[in-house]
Design a protein around this nucleic acid. Sequence first.
DNA 1: TATGAATGAGTCTTCATTCAT
DNA 2: TATGAATGAAGACTCATTCAT
Lengths: 214, 214, 214, 214
Amino acid sequence: MGRVSTPTSSRAERMRLQLREEIVQTAAEVFAERGYHRTGIADIAQRLGVGNSSIYAHFAGKRALFDVVIDDAMSGVMSLLTAENAPAAADTFEDYQEQVRRIASGFTVALRDDPAVLRLLRALLVEAGGVDEELAGKASAFTDAATQVTAAYLGHGRSRGYLRADLDVEATARVVNAMIFSVALEETRREATPEETQRIVDATLALYFGGVAA
Amino acid sequence: MGRVSTPTSSRAERMRLQLREEIVQTAAEVFAERGYHRTGIADIAQRLGVGNSSIYAHFAGKRALFDVVIDDAMSGVMSLLTAENAPAAADTFEDYQEQVRRIASGFTVALRDDPAVLRLLRALLVEAGGVDEELAGKASAFTDAATQVTAAYLGHGRSRGYLRADLDVEATARVVNAMIFSVALEETRREATPEETQRIVDATLALYFGGVAA
Amino acid sequence: MGRVSTPTSSRAERMRLQLREEIVQTAAEVFAERGYHRTGIADIAQRLGVGNSSIYAHFAGKRALFDVVIDDAMSGVMSLLTAENAPAAADTFEDYQEQVRRIASGFTVALRDDPAVLRLLRALLVEAGGVDEELAGKASAFTDAATQVTAAYLGHGRSRGYLRADLDVEATARVVNAMIFSVALEETRREATPEETQRIVDATLALYFGGVAA
Amino acid sequence: MGRVSTPTSSRAERMRLQLREEIVQTAAEVFAERGYHRTGIADIAQRLGVGNSSIYAHFAGKRALFDVVIDDAMSGVMSLLTAENAPAAADTFEDYQEQVRRIASGFTVALRDDPAVLRLLRALLVEAGGVDEELAGKASAFTDAATQVTAAYLGHGRSRGYLRADLDVEATARVVNAMIFSVALEETRREATPEETQRIVDATLALYFGGVAA
DNA sequence: TATGAATGAGTCTTCATTCAT
DNA sequence: TATGAATGAAGACTCATTCAT
């Protein structure tokens, strides 16, 4: 039989999926701009130029759509965090610095190109408690997952000897991620110029690698 | 005949102010627990055991009440940040470490005793954009003010020579504050044990003072 | 027993009545300025400088107070209409014109001195339907009573022969009163100068006595 | 294929406009019956048999709906006042009487068929001050406009010589209109029989043309 | 007795969701 | 299947009235 079946439905299916994707895109934009509560289903539908109820043909409701949007944003950030550089890759402090700079740079570029992702993260992290218990749980799960990723890097560095032997890997991972997200969120709030952002990134890395001590 | 001065009006005035204070307290609790949008005037009134409209005798509306609550929280945090330790106090790195530890400790204790303040800050920083442009501006002003305070400490330390000469004071101040607030917010979100919190604080300070490098 | 009794209570009684009177006065002002619905009990109490509930010590409620105010205004207008000139007084058209001019002049002067009465009438006639069935009935009763007064004048003049023999006394009375009240109300609405008002009064009388025909 | 032109949108548009029209009609009824303040959005929606919020799909709010209703009533009355008879049409007093009778008759018939218009006018003229400064202004503008129309007739008649040479055109116009509106309003208030109304109209015209003098 | 703070019923308005076309 | 008009539940706010002092 193969997959000869339903070629017509296949065309319809493609269009259906495409509309779904457009809804998610548009919803991401609007949610990012205005936050969950100030965003109305009508706002999303209108910006996309479709009818209100078309959204309900693809998502159970506003909350469900937000879930999908947030999941997309989360996985986007997670792939930035984990992209191209395995924790195992660095063996010296110099390599590690290089690796982190590369990641930070990738981060910066990616977010410059698609700042909505970050604003969505803010929507998640910030409004989580104001929407739902379930959403709050999702936010926690996300920070926990991010902590795991960072902790893996830190653990590798400590065992390789290029990070402090007394480093509290798990706690530091949490702190570092908080710092990263905070800076990132803060930079999107005030619409910072690339130069300002670069200064913040440099300051962050300097603090990270060497602390403030002389 | 001593203080004949308007004792009746004084009594009534006291009760009026007391109710106002109770409203602010209760509102702070509920806003902290549920966020701005999920909190109804009815929730606050009910928890306090007064009628809905009593709140309107003291505040122009929900938004105005939230403003007062947020202002209280902001000034609470600002006094924690600036309390008892002038930027000029430390002259050596050891003194400075001691000073920062003292502040951190004060912070920790204060927030353990009154965690609502922090949750309110989260409400401010997180929901700001989802409520009002004005509130968003208030949030920005707050982070800017906090940056100034921290930058004063860092500038003093750099000029004394116990902090890195190449320290980007303003940028680092921003990063450090972001880190502090993030950690604090995160710790209130997941209801961390005192031990966990202590580990986070230690990790934060270690990172701050010496970075991650071996 | 006589009425020697309770001289103290008599003093108190006097003050009580005086306050009651002041409330009616003030209420009349505010009702006249803002109409029934836009006037709050608090507005009246505040302007008089007494507490909200003092009003309830003298009147059953807002509606009852309005009733008293309206009754006062109605009897004020009725005495203007019936004042000093009995329907029987005039025997010639010249006498009648003189009489009517005297009444109109008294009206004008009285309302110039106490324009609130008229505004209250407006409040009665205009808002009657928007408040209560009962108030609407009172408004009807008032216009009916005024019609009776005017009809008596007209009837007298017709029987004396100085008014048209084919005059429909009752219907004309109704029309004339409507004209009088309308003009009076309209003059209070737009804050007319005395000169403008005089022109209107003259035009009204001219129309009344001689119609528009050449 | 003839007129393929967007029949769907056209159909929907028609229904939309129809509902809007029904809302205005029903609102006119209820506002006329109960006045602005005693009319709730719910009353209107319920009488029409639609949901409360459907009204908000067509009008910004209660006040905006009232505005439309009032504007309709005002233009309805203005067309009655100006209909089919130009001020210039009459050249003799007989012609003029005929013309005025025709207008009065048209008025009477029109208001008998649609008494709501008049009740609405009452709502406007009476409640104007009790709702809004803006509405009060609209009421003034309306009476001024009506005065202009009437003054044009009177001015024409005076220059033709069939009206009194000493006629104060503007003041008389104001009086006459006040008389007309008052009578009309009064007739709707007490639910007069056609015969009673006819007597009032006749009395009004008699007064208008010849005054009361014998 | 006068006060004015507190009340709670009533109202307008919003918006996520459904349904007829 | 897509539409967008209609829905109704929910929430902020007002104000005449009551009650403890």
